[in-house]
Design a protein around this nucleic acid. Structure first.
Lengths: 159, 159
DNA sequence: TGGCTATTGATATGTTATAACATACAAGGT
DNA sequence: ACCTTGTATGTTATAACATATCAATAGCCA
């Protein structure tokens, strides 16, 4: 799996196909992609950065789509539950899912310089964490795997 | 490495030895384990749960050790920087380090039922995350690895 | 001693998130 | 068309987490 987000790509397409995939999912799963939710997803998709709930709220309210925190949090809750977005715990911020459609355990590469975030996948039940959980008798339900550091571009800039 | 926190152990000793190790480190590294910092560490050591900054503050202020948020955050910053405590990002909460003394990349097993947290270790640069970072040209500086689920006791209780 | 730095104290503020309650609106049955 | 049910939204308030700033003080050491 390549870590999109640090590489050049047709971004408009990336937004379009993300929205299309979400729409298809909603039809299939009888979820309602309301205007606020749709626009919230579109805003997240238009970045490869994680946005705070209040950043999102600011953009939504510019367009008359609500102005109070719950509006943003509800939209984000929906997107996260539906698997259309992820929360980046280390940033308390939210990111459009880059692999919309498949069920996956996400992992993130977070650039501390430019704040861009790339999503990749992890298999937490394997590897050392899984082994530790096994040994302890711990049942893993969800994992948070996030690396902070420097993306290729910022690495080059720093050198 | 066993995941202390879900298992029986001599807890008083665990507090004493943690404090002793921190004191030794401070002497060696010329850090100042002031009363607030020392007591904050002791409070964290006396739990195998992550405490929020305001939980800690409440306990400190009961004892006259400051009453405003900066007091707790400064103590926590010191403890985290010194490696005596870790922040659990998924909870926005703090935990005494269980392997005080050795340099390590921590990982956490977090029980959603009883909120106990066990610390274990990870080797993030190996495994899938490391491979993804390598491929992307991303330089990992720090990792957050946290599993949420059920500890052995709560698993049994649920069944 | 004097100057430097780290720490503390105090106040205010910023940021992230949820509770609680009221209202609107869509979908389906009668 | 009318009502019922469930979902979504609007609104207000507050909880929870975190930092900025500035003045006062304590420890260190040249």
């Amino acid at each position: 799996m390549t870590a999109l987000g640090f590489t050049q790509h047709d971004h408009a397409k990336c937004v379009r196909s993300g929205l299309a995939a979400a729409e298809a999912q909603c039809r299939a799963r009888k979820l309602r992609l309301t205007p606020v939710r749709r626009r919230a997803l579109e805003i997240l998709l238009s970045e490869h950065r994680a946005l705070g709930a209040y950043d999102l709220l600011a953009r939504l309210s510019e367009e008359g789509l609500g102005s109070q925190p719950p509006v943003a949090y509800r939209a984000l809750d929906f997107l996260v539950k539906a698997g259309f977005a992820h929360k980046v715990e280390a940033l308390n911020a939210y990111l459009a899912c880059a692999h919309l459609g498949d069920d996956h355990a996400p992992a993130f590469l977070i650039c501390r310089a430019c704040r861009s975030v790339a999503e990749t996948a992890t298999t937490p039940r394997q590897g050392r964490l899984g082994a530790a959980a096994e040994e302890a008798g711990f049942l893993i339900e969800r994992t948070v795997v996030e690396a902070q550091g420097l993306c290729p571009a910022c690495r080059k800039a720093a050198a």
